[in-house]
Design a protein around this nucleic acid. Structure first.
Lengths: 229, 229
DNA sequence: TATGAATATATTGTCGACAATTTGCTCATT
DNA sequence: AATGAGCAAATTGTCGACAATATATTCATA
């Protein structure tokens, strides 16, 4: 049910919580279009709730950079730009590089084995359904390593802010790349480095992995824009 | 008036905005003690407002990791731990390293000159008032470089989340170090690298600068704890 | 016709009251 | 005296209504 990366059953009790999750998905999937204005009365009646919990949800959406709010004016869904996407990738290079280093230093053998099992699962999924791996599978891998860092702020940033932004751009720019086999090999290299507790190497490989991914995306965007124009 | 790092006059119009700023300062300065429970009715009447905008403010405080909320239970100010402080420093090493690199690539000569002027100002302040440089002066320098990165998410994270957390720990652990002269030299080195548009070097120097700072803080905490026990 | 002021409409911000849930207390039972 | 069930008090979550602000429209004037 829940699209959020945390494993816990996620018993979202309050209305604000539920509506926040729904809105996150609605924005990611473009049901509420990028750049569009958000009307509080309209949304409230649409979801059958009052404006109180809705505004609480909007606060959180603002915090995770999915909407922008101006006092006394209202909220808009963010507009997607190539520049912002690059900005996000640069931050991921830096932050997930750190995460990989810490994961290499901290993860137990048991954790590493589970990570390996995940890769094994992905190997089969790639054959039968590349698109799944490209979306959720890749996300699972990266989030697993962030969790392995054991740094609460890192985990927090990833699961609250970055996670939704990454999904948003994946969904709406909807790019399917030829990089899947290459990316999978890079994942294997990263896990190897983590298993050997080689933090420096894990950091280097993770940064480069995301950097490669960024360059690939930039190239695709350029080509796509060239066609569109 | 405003303690926030952005330069704009910061015309906070809405009550929720003002109360959020006030609460941020109150928490940073320990007026609302770390680890204490927050009573919505009590706070609301204390500040002479209703619970609506207060809850909106609490949402933001939660987003910047100053308080923790549990549904149907309430909010508590975060508790300060050595581990969390180290986590924050690690993230700063990574993120501000990136910021320095981007700043070296992007900043105009005019921006670099202003940064230099800031250092010159600090040089005099150190002589007459070390404590100022150690708190706000250091913050000014680091924020200036983050802004120089021109990465909106980086700027956002720093000014919304990290900024307040850094101030919180500085205030409450209130450590005054002997590192001021050394830190100043490191600042100069970083600016030099930025002036030469040597991104790699700027990143390395900034990461090491924060890493040194972290080690110094860890050492001081250990000594302090040793005395306390 | 174009521009701008004045008004009208709609939207956001704030408030106080009620509902739902949790916490603390009382009291009976072992 | 200690434990636990049941009840009372307090706190959080939600709602609908009102106030303040911004946007849209109307109308007069150049």
């Amino acid at each position: 049910m829940s699209e959020s990366p945390q494993n816990e059953p996620n018993v979202v009790s309050t209305i604000a919580d539920k509506i926040c999750s729904k809105l996150q998905n609605a924005i990611v999937e473009g049901i509420i279009p990028a750049g569009s204005k958000i009307s509080e009365p309209a949304l409230a009646s649409e979801y059958g709730i009052s404006r109180g919990p809705l505004r609480e949800a909007l606060s959180r959406l603002e915090a995770c950079n999915l909407i922008e709010r101006k006092p006394n004016v209202g909220a808009r869904v963010v507009t997607l730009t190539r520049e912002h996407l690059v900005e996000i990738y640069l931050i991921r290079e830096s932050l997930e590089g750190l995460a990989a280093r810490l994961a290499a230093e901290n993860m137990s053998d048991k954790d590493v084995n589970e990570l390996d099992a995940l890769l094994e699962k992905h190997k089969h999924q790639i054959i039968q359904d590349q698109s799944y791996y490209q979306k959720e599978g890749d996300m699972d891998f990266h989030f697993r390593i962030v969790k392995g860092s054991n740094n609460s702020y890192l985990i927090d940033m990833f699961s609250n802010d970055l996670y939704h932004l990454i999904r948003l751009y994946r969904y709406q720019f909807g790019m399917v790349s030829k990089r899947v086999p290459r990316a999978f090999v890079e994942h294997e290299q990263i896990v190897d480095a983590i298993r050997q507790h080689d933090g420096e190497l894990a950091q280097f490989l993770m940064s480069r992995h995301i950097s490669n991914s960024r360059k690939n995306v930039e190239k695709m965007l350029d080509e796509h824009l060239a066609i569109t124009d």
